[in-house]
């Protein structure tokens, strides 16, 4: 099965027949590694430079998202895809917030969709790979614990620049809640309130927004389309969702369509939300200095076909509006 490809992808599933099927799908383009459990998968990532990992969620021992979390710390440049089946919804919710997943694929999958997603992930991985030291370097400084690498990544973010506050856009339809949030976060951040999509749109075109905290009613297509358009036009904005309900499908959508950063369920503790905003600010600064760390940005650069495919008409309409507003204000 040896191929001359220098792209390594790792397939993880406890079911050998699935592994055989997936191997057959990709073996002509890429080097295939397979593992039937989380431990083996992690070992393979330690030993090899893996570009993309595609893991099943439900496996004996470690669950898929747990495996991906560990892989993220060992090899941050590896793009992680989670294959989920029925009744894994609860686990998905947790995985969204640990930020280990690039895309969710649901079972049963379509072969074209699978190939497109993996293909885009490979492109992104190659681009992102330039940012991180090669596997060989990591191996040389062996003993470097995975956790440290994560810390390192966060530390890379530059400190707050002088007295300039970073923009926090708060989108909340409920005026009362909007005011409360403005009061809580107003002192700490440069906050911009918006109580509708239109207002959010105005604020986005007038100010430089780092983090967007939003309670859009995402069940309406409008909300998702708008956020998707925002992420397309301003890939550096980090989006935090506040919602009323834990809804796994929504979580999958928000990861797949606008790479949501965190997903908070109302009501939540002020401290937790503040912590999230802070780390989102750090993330946003990192994106500005090191765009390659922004998967959404890279995806747009190297795999526009993947991104474009998911775009609906409404999104395009919003994108056009955002684009022209940008030009008008010179943002």
């Amino acid at each position: 099965m040896a191929t001359e490809s220098n792209i390594n992808i790792l397939l993880v599933d406890d079911e050998p027949l699935v592994l055989q099927s997936l191997s057959a799908t990709f073996r002509r383009q890429y080097n295939i590694f397979t593992a039937t459990n989380g431990k083996d998968a992690i070992e393979i990532v330690r030993q090899n430079h893996i570009h993309v990992v595609l893991s099943d969620q439900r496996m004996p021992g470690m669950l898929g998202h747990e495996v991906l979390r560990v892989i993220k710390t060992i090899s941050p440049s590896t793009i992680r895809i989670l294959l989920t089946g029925y009744s894994d919804l609860d686990a998905i919710m947790n995985s969204v917030n640990s930020g280990e997943v690039f895309r969710f694929l649901t079972k049963p999958w379509k072969i074209d969709q699978l190939r497109d997603t993996v293909g885009a992930a490979v492109d992104i991985a190659q681009k992102v790979g330039q940012l991180y030291p090669s596997k060989a370097d990591i191996m040389r400084t062996s003993g470097a614990e995975p956790a440290e690498i994560v810390e390192q990544e966060e530390e890379v973010a530059p400190p707050v620049a002088g007295n300039q506050k970073e923009g926090l856009l708060i989108v909340e339809f409920n005026k009362e809640q909007l005011n409360t949030m403005m009061q809580v976060f107003g002192k700490k951040y440069q906050t911009y309130p918006a109580s509708s999509i239109t207002e959010a749109f105005d604020q986005l075109s007038k100010h430089e927004v780092y983090v967007m905290l939003t309670d859009l009613n995402l069940n309406s297509e409008d909300g998702i389309d708008f956020l998707h358009a925002v992420k397309q036009e301003y890939p550096n904005i980090v989006i935090i969702l506040l919602t009323q309900v834990r809804d796994a499908l929504l979580a999958i959508k928000s990861i797949n369509e606008f790479q949501v950063y965190r997903y908070h369920v109302k009501p939540c503790a002020v401290e937790d939300l503040d912590k999230t905003i802070q780390s989102a600010m750090n993330r946003a600064r990192t994106y500005r200095t090191q765009p390659l760390k922004n998967v959404a940005y890279v995806a747009k650069e190297v795999a526009p076909q993947l991104v474009e495919k998911e775009v609906s008409e409404k999104t395009n309409w919003w994108r056009d509006k955002l684009r022209s507003a940008k030009k008008l204000f010179g943002g």
Binding site: S21, T25, I111
Partner: peptide
């Protein structure tokens, strides 16, 4: 049942495409 069916359904479909 759905979970148990999903897996074989997934790879059978994939296999047939291949």
């Amino acid at each position: 049942l759905a979970h148990e069916m999903n897996t074989p359904l997934g790879f059978v479909r994939n296999n047939i495409e291949i």
